[in-house]
Design a protein around this nucleic acid. Structure first.
Lengths: 246, 246
DNA sequence: CGTTAACTTGATAGCATTCAACTAGCGTGG
DNA sequence: CCACGCTAGTTGAATGCTATCAAGTTAACG
């Protein structure tokens, strides 16, 4: 089931890291992805699973999470179209967390047995995927900093900045805002804050004229101040120079 | 400057993930590592650097950190002999954090120009390094959970469990405890807690008979309860089955 | 239009920070 | 040899950010 070249999420994603040759691009497009539709809040892979395939998010919003003691859950990252949140399963047999959709989504799957020889044949693409997992790691480190050393207000501001830049790079956001269907509960699970406090903090961000949030959408009213509030610096996203951000 | 085979930290490290063939082992030993001594609290690479080499920790204790606003610092990981904390620089040009020793240390360096063709020649070792960076990523995710959803007591317990298992796997710890020269300040920087609170929490852990801590050394008095206190589960370390832990 | 999920608001409680001071250990230099 | 200074660790009190509890409001949806 071929995906169209123009909007191919994997190509766009890799090219946020470096430019592919035409042959490489063709090879990616020729890969036998299996598309599948998901509802909101469906698990894609679960903690302790041993996946035999990798997925790419084509449409929708997903997250990694882990259920902690007392049934609370920690969200460890959000994922947007183009992301391949389980490439790691190529090298790590057992999942140490779960992956789930947050909105109705479309995912493209590729079996490990197809991907492995493909990467052996195209080492530059293999390196690109390695690089992508390294950027993921950099984002996790940033989250450690965010949750570890920032208070609620900058913490949420930083999260919004990250999502905005990542979406813009993938051309999924205009320059004024982006679709972000996370509930306040989910933002709390990601930032380690209670729903109540997320609510109050968002109100403050709105009151300060930094953002406006409608249902499922965040409008950036003052990008400079939002970045300042979140101490945001996009170095950790390791974007290829020349990629459009703002 | 060849390192002895028996205790070669890179080999031992890779073999916590999978077993090397004799030829692969020889090839690793033959690599032209450059050894260098460091004092405590010296930077190895700095935020924004563009490293041209990778390092392996041969002896000592190191950490990744980032300076946050107001001069506070967040430690994002601790590193022990065998760790290669900047392999990522092979694929990510610019450092998004710093790397520093915490104790007097010995490091072995290998230029990117040597490592790159080496990895091209030994794809299994290349995959092992990829895998190792993925485990690093898994540890960061665990830290997000730890800092995001656990209170001081389990948070510190979890950190101690992690360090103990990692050290045991590298045969750097007996079954009763391990050398850990982090100051309470540094533990605070890593867990996002104030020095004062780290101090009080350690006292509680000691008072509950879980650990004993002398200068630079942690003695595990009750491993089962310490794990329970920290909700610790070593899945995220992705150890090769058969590796000795406890 | 009823039902449920998401969001909002107010009040109370608690974990952790901050400030400040004090102790212990250790190396240096007079 | 002891004073001095420095670092790491310890303790107490006060403040504060954030969680929790409880209830009410809005929005979405069949």
């Amino acid at each position: 089931m071929p995906l169209s070249l123009a909007a191919h999420p994997m190509i766009r994603k890799i090219e946020t890291l470096f430019l592919l040759t035409p042959e490489e691009r063709d090879a990616v497009v020729a890969l036998p992805f299996a598309l599948r539709n998901y509802n909101a809040d469906q698990d894609i892979v679960r903690d302790r699973d041993r996946p035999s395939q990798c997925c790419i998010i084509v449409k929708g919003l997903a997250c990694r999470y882990k259920i902690m003691g007392e049934g609370k859950r920690q969200i460890m990252s959000f994922h947007i179209p183009g992301d391949m949140p389980d490439v790691m399963s190529l090298h790590l047999e057992v999942m140490d967390h779960s992956l789930a959709t947050m909105t109705p989504s479309v995912l493209a799957f590729l079996p490990h047995e197809v991907l492995r020889p493909f990467l052996a044949k195209y080492p530059r693409i293999s390196d690109a995927l390695w690089r992508d997992t390294l950027v993921d790691g950099a984002i996790f480190r940033e989250w450690v900093c965010n949750v570890g050393h920032r208070e609620a207000y900058p913490r949420i501001a930083h999260l919004l900045c990250e999502m905005f830049v990542r979406m813009r790079v993938m051309e999924l956001a205009g320059d004024d805002g982006f679709d972000f269907a996370a509930t306040q509960q989910e933002i709390g699970d990601a930032t380690g804050l209670s729903t109540v406090h997320v609510n109050r903090t968002l109100q403050k961000l709105r009151g300060d004229g930094l953002i406006r949030s409608e249902s499922g959408r965040v409008v950036i009213l003052n990008w400079a101040d939002l970045q300042r509030a979140g101490e945001f610096d996009d170095t950790f996203l390791h974007l290829r120079p020349g990629v459009v951000t703002h």
